[in-house]
């Protein structure tokens, strides 16, 4: 808030021209950019995402290609162009790590998006409409909470077969619960704000008020939660993969690579350390970014 709250003369000066206001989003962005940890996190995340998406095309080996000359775990070797070596089946570790990153990030982002849409919709409706609707929706959420996740995923897998898409749905279907609760709580406090009453007094319908006033005002909190959910989902995916319920060979993800690497730990620790390092750095960066976002979006805490 620089010159804006200013003196009446500040106001007189811009009488001629229309000045652009600075929205809360712009303010938050500025604060985020001033936070070194968050910016570093963001930059590294963008790099990892870029390398994961583009990298596999540039490498001499693909993720599922077996180097038949060496069907064993090889150390890094420039001559064979296995820059990170190979896994126990002779597949290029770098290519697999990058491809695994692509899958892990995709699962993380897509499943979170699913959670975001369901969670915000349900939470905002439950919180704003209240009464019966709220009761039924939230009891359903409670019910879903009480179903064990693995059990739920196994049932889905059994019914629909193992499927890549199913995984997004399964994880998303679980993660939206918390999102819905958070959004509902936020909506309940917003509902009693005077600007909501003002919107009603000026003839706004319920749907209009939810879309126009409630959702934009809960987005800040939601975004923080999203950045904290993505790493959670990545972990969840690796857990499911670990149980053999996730991605299928020869496709891979960080979780699976870590699982494979753990088996090879004594022979070639490299196969564990490299994907684990990628995943850890990514999770760290998401957490830093999430923290930064929370500080940026909630200026009362500064």
């Amino acid at each position: 808030m620089s010159a804006n709250l200013a003196s009446p003369h500040g106001a007189a000066l811009d009488a001629a021209a229309t000045t652009e206001g600075r929205s809360l989003w712009q303010d938050a962005w500025r604060r985020l950019m001033a936070n070194h940890a968050a910016v570093t996190g963001l930059v590294i995340l963008v790099l990892i995402a870029l390398v994961s998406v583009v990298g596999p095309y540039l490498l001499p080996w693909t993720y599922d290609e077996i180097d038949w000359r060496h069907v064993e775990a090889l150390p890094p070797d420039m001559a064979t162009r296995h820059y990170f070596g190979t896994d126990s089946l002779g597949r290029d570790l770098l290519a697999r790590t990058l491809f695994g990153g692509r899958i892990s990030l995709m699962v993380g982002i897509l499943a979170t998006t699913v959670a975001l849409f369901i969670g915000v919709t349900v939470g905002a409706i439950a919180g704003f409409v209240g009464g019966r609707t709220d009761q039924y929706l939230m009891r359903f959420v409670d019910l879903m909470y009480s179903v064990p996740l693995t059990f739920f995923v196994i049932i889905l897998m059994v019914v629909f077969g193992r499927n890549f898409i199913l995984m997004f749905l399964a994880i998303g279907a679980v993660e939206w619960l918390t999102m819905a609760r958070i959004v509902r709580g936020q909506t309940l406090t917003l509902r009693n704000k005077e600007f909501i009453e003002a919107a009603r007094a000026s003839g706004g319908s319920t749907t209009w008020i939810i879309i126009r006033h409630i959702v934009p005002n809960v987005l800040g909190v939601v975004m923080v939660y999203v950045t904290l959910t993505i790493p959670q989902v990545i972990l969840l995916e690796s857990f499911l993969s670990f149980l053999g319920l996730g991605i299928q060979e020869p496709m891979t993800s960080w979780g699976m690579l870590i699982n494979d690497g753990a088996a090879e730990l004594e022979v070639s620790p490299r196969t564990l350390i490299i994907p684990a390092a990628f995943m850890t750095v990514t999770l760290f960066c998401f957490n830093f970014l999430g923290d930064g976002l929370r500080d940026a979006l909630d200026p009362k805490d500064r």
């Binding site: 808030m1 620089s2 010159a3 804006n4 709250l5 200013a6 003196s7 009446p8 003369h9 500040g10």
Partner: peptide, 20 residues
Amino acid sequence: IPGQPPNLQNLPSGCSYHPR
């Protein structure tokens, strides 16, 4: 009293009350 209370981040020059 015309005008708005002063903004501490951007006080008027001289006497801060002068614009009003």
